[in-house]
Amino acid sequence: MTVPNLVGAGLIVIGAGIGLGKIGGSAMEGIARQPEATGKIQTAMIIIAALLEGLAFGALFLGK
């Protein structure tokens, strides 16, 4: 792996980390406000996290 590749991989991971943090944080807030909607919020959270993860993995995969 060359230096630009490594820097790119680092940037991807930082971006994905911020995104996952925001999703997780908002889901936590939502669950705290409405505990009865926990199931629905978790499902939506996992779907969005999966989409984000797909994007991050795709970028890592293409930059390999």
């Binding site: 999966a50 993860e53 797909g54 994007l55 993995f57 795709g58």
Partner: peptide, 11 residues
């Protein structure tokens, strides 16, 4: 399809 295949493979 690309997101489906890359996610599973990469994970």
């Amino acid at each position: 399809p690309f997101s489906l295949l890359v996610r599973l493979f990469a994970n």
